[in-house]
Write a protein that binds this DNA or RNA. Structure first.
Lengths: 225, 225
DNA sequence: CCAAAAGTGTTCAGTTTACACCCATGA
DNA sequence: TCATGGGTGTAAACTGAACACTTTTGG
């Protein structure tokens, strides 16, 4: 498995992962602070080199585990970035993924005391990332929007049980639109992808909302809207 | 630009390109015959290694030029295939693209006498390709279908001037559906993406068809249907 | 005059949008 | 009792789908 490697100039393969969550009506992405030159102090998407004996997908899963402490999340490859000069360190081609976690998982794995090295940033507030990560992030957001519109992946951004208002806000935040409440509810329930649990939310200073769950928590191509 | 390369195990980057055309009411893809073991005699998508000083996109353009003699075509990256064992030759990660040419260009660059090493095969007749190219081709076709539905890229599969029936057949062949003629014409003309040239086809044993052209021959996101 | 493909409108059903008020709870 | 978000239906506009016959040419 090494015969090629003497004969050609090589590129190193890396993966970068845009890990998203939705919190406080904002789409947020996990960023890490770079500790080495030439990007020292700048923020970047979590990433890492792919090992010689692991698949690229496995590399992305490992990066998520090692850098963000997160496992078992929705993960989707959306593009490969291969400009010669994208990494001043050498010839590195990056295969980019996006991943989704619920707000609870997000908080569980990234503690506030890590804030100096690892933090959740609202996508709209992201400025100046290392490498070509601004372009990668922009592509990740675009892909997330498309995917949300054509699949049930919203399940991976919400707790097991949720209210229809939570679900609606999720769509509004990610797609950056507003949706009519009555029309949204009609369509979501008619789709059959979301079903009532019979339970109600407790403790809010208002009428308690009915709780729903996704009929299936495996990715499928079908629109809620 | 080489500092990384002593420290890690590397993968070699390749690109594979699914070059499509539509001919005789069939979606066809260009295949090459492998001349080396372990795939000698098998057919594969044109592909090649990416050089150390060229971007991955540039590599794909070069592969198209060198292997198929084709330049200046619509080219889109759609996925990266990174299983460890996908290439028995060594650790090769492949960035996959699809490309589109009109039938005239297809014939111009691939002559019938090359048939033993290079040929156009109807996608539905493709069997057993080298490497993981069956999976790559399947993904390419899926991406082509999606893209055709949401953009004007059909322009790159047709001559500059074409009849609406040609355009409709193109959609029917690629999307594998049938479309109502009157509805199709209404929508295409209403879209404004296709405009009449005022000319008519000559020489057919039937009523001559009006010739149309695409208002713009640069890719844009907008649906004809 | 025959074969072949071009060209052309209308109706109906289903879907999408817009829109405003009462309800249940905790503080 | 007030503030907060939960929950509900209908009418109008629009969009998509179905459908058949006449026209023009070459042979």
């Amino acid at each position: 498995m090494v015969s090629v490697q003497q004969k050609y100039e090589h590129a190193v393969i890396a993966t970068d992962v845009a890990l998203f969550t939705v919190e406080k009506d904002q789409l947020k992405v996990l960023l890490m602070k770079m500790t080495k030159e030439p990007f020292m102090g700048k923020w970047a998407l979590p990433g890492g080199l792919v090992g010689g004996e692991e698949s690229v997908d496995a590399g992305a899963i490992r990066v998520l585990q090692e850098k963000a402490g997160v496992t078992n999340v929705y993960l989707e490859q959306f593009g490969t970035f291969g400009e010669v000069d994208r990494d001043p360190f050498g010839r590195v081609v990056s295969v980019a993924y996006f991943a989704l976690v619920s707000q609870e998982e997000a908080r569980m794995h990234v503690s506030p005391e890590q804030e100096d090295s690892l933090k959740w940033v609202a996508v709209q507030d992201v400025k100046e990332l290392a490498y070509d990560h601004e372009a990668i992030l922009a592509a990740a957001v675009a892909q997330l929007q498309t995917r949300l519109s054509y699949s049930n992946i919203a399940y991976s951004l919400l707790p097991r049980q949720f209210t229809l208002t939570q679900l609606q806000r999720l769509y509004e935040v990610i797609l950056d639109t507003t949706i009519d409440k009555r029309n949204f509810r009609k369509r979501v329930l008619a789709s059959g992808l979301v079903v009532p649990t019979g339970k109600k939310q407790e403790g809010a200073a208002n009428r308690p909302a009915a709780l729903y769950r996704f009929a299936s928590r495996t990715p499928q191509q079908a629109s809620l809207l």
